[in-house]
Design a protein around this nucleic acid. Sequence first.
RNA 1: GCCUGGGUAGCUCAGUCGGUAGAGCAACGCAUUCGUAAUGCGUAGGUCAGGAGUUCGAAUCUCCUCCCAGGCUCCA
Length: 659
Amino acid sequence: MSDIEDLLPDGSARSVPEGATGLDLAGAIGKRLAKDALAAQINGDLKDLSVALRAGDHVAIVTPSSELGREIIRHSTSHVLAQAVTRLWPGAHYAIGPSITDGFYYDFELPGDAHFSDGDLERIDAEMRSIIREDQPFTRAEFSWADGLALFADQPFKLEIINAVASGGSAEDLDEVDASVVSTYANSPTFRDLCRGPHVPTTSRLGHFKLTRVAGAYWRGDEKRPQLQRIYGTAWESEAALEAHLEFLVQAELRDHRRLGQELDLFSFPSEIGPGLAVFHPKGGTMRRIMEDYSRNRHVQGGYEFVNTPHISKEDLFLTSGHLQWFADGMYPPMELDDGQKYYLKPMNCPFHVLIFKSRQRSYRELPLRFFEFGAVYRYEKSGVVHGLTRVRGMTQDDAHIFCTREQMAGELASLLTFVLDLLRDFGLADFYLELSTRPEGKAVGTDAEWHEAEATLADVANAAGLELVMDPGGGAFYGPKISVQARDAIGRTHQMSTIQLDFQTPQRFDATYISADNARTQPIMIHRALFGSVERFMAVLLEHYAGNMPTWLSPEQVRVLGVRNDHDAYATSVAEALRRDGVRVTVEEASEPLGARIRKAKLEKVPYILVVGDDDVAKGTLGVNQRGSNDPERGVALAEFRQRLNLEIAEHGSPEVT
RNA sequence: GCCUGGGUAGCUCAGUCGGUAGAGCAACGCAUUCGUAAUGCGUAGGUCAGGAGUUCGAAUCUCCUCCCAGGCUCCA
């Protein structure tokens, strides 16, 4: 038997005996690596460790603490989950079980009309751990189509996947299985799954997992097909990594905007009003006002003109716009008047702005026209999707429509994108990428040429912005493609923020025209854009980004002044008055409770500055400054100095924690 | 809309076998006057989401409706 040479990721060559496997190679490199190895990446393809190497292969050994390693662990854990379920519920059908971000899931259909309930997770977990203790190998075997069909004769979902792949297959199916043969992994004589692999060598390599929830999921993601039950879990390479992830989930929950909304007394959703319909309390109302005022000022500077439109309209308007044809299900049902006329709550502001454009004859000299409105819109979201302030049934869009010529379009889009990013940065979001959503198949109006031009224009502008660009094929609106700005928040989650949509259709549908330089009636290009998206959603994102510790300029209460004793209250009040004259939102809490208790309350309310004033301060005209996020109060700060610092911080949109 | 859970005081939650409800915090009152994350004592607070049913008796069991959560589908 002769040796062969293979290449390692660092470019070096390593010789191993002919017929050696990935595991042998790992062993040749080091004992520790052989112990850790999960799989091998051979010439770019992920393979089981047991696969034999050929001369000249480029081989990388996949270890647990890499992204690929975690993916394999998660995928293998999902197989263990499926086996556990089939042991506990003989006759259960298992559908698909991929790895996902941070974990895995598997979809099941239980025999009879059985369903998982939350309590079953514990039993399944115990069964999974016993499978892991059994140290079962993941054994790959390949079969012909016919043998594959026979093998999974009692697994209808597997049969459907095999048949789909045999007859061409979709990308989704090919992800699950290989195109050429039916490949399977068997863990034991009683459990075999259809899978392309690779997997960890044996189940004992797994175990740092937690089943998190049971959910419903449609087979093949199709609402009209049977609903299966999905079990989600998270899995990691070590107990420490698992613990760290669970802690991350706890931290994420602490900054949930719905929780903060209640704790900070910002808003609520009274059930008397209805799902997805928020009321803003005084503090939330203040925060909104500051956000809106700031946005208004920026729009004035940006050359926008302010318009106002009603909340309801006759049905014809939405027939002309096309919204009723496409989105009737998503609109509140009509109010029908005595004469049979139907009125709808508006789900969008655009048709109204088009009518303002059309209210008189327009000249090319007026363009671009930029109409801005904080427009309240109502959408009848399905009951299961309503979520806090991020998915509501009534919201306020910072909506504008720009009417311009074809020639102006590219420049207008480019300056708009700058305007958007500047505004988002002013609110403290800094980490962005762009997403380009293109024509939705079977749900679009307009010609191929128009779509092509619109998509190409947006792509150019997006590329010119120098940000990462992600494609979202088919994600556009029915009337045109869009760019959306995605922002990463303080703990790395992404949120869709602003959208910019290009629209050649609406002006056509409404027959909106201007008189061009050559005296011809010409259709303008319409750009839809919302920077906050909705004021409600934007507030939610900011709350989660800052974990409720809003920068001082956005804090509903910026300063609270506390006298040490009752006889300091008068001085505290005079300090507050001085700050209030600067426009600062400040309150005084009288000394009817111990100082420590009042400080605690103010800290829990996340007030950026707590000023404590006592004998020394009354005598010298100073303050004790307790800054949010600091455990080290500053004593004897002159009032004038504090005012200067605070006013500067507010003007610069700063936050006390940022030093 | 669908699947699985849930709804008890303002908030967070306990409530055993079906025997008419409890804590902590908050609120209110009185006392306390205090230098950086909880002063003490007392008081009040409930249509156990709503409705119907089973039962001598329902927060507890059954059904319906509303609302909430986690997912799926959807998102102009």
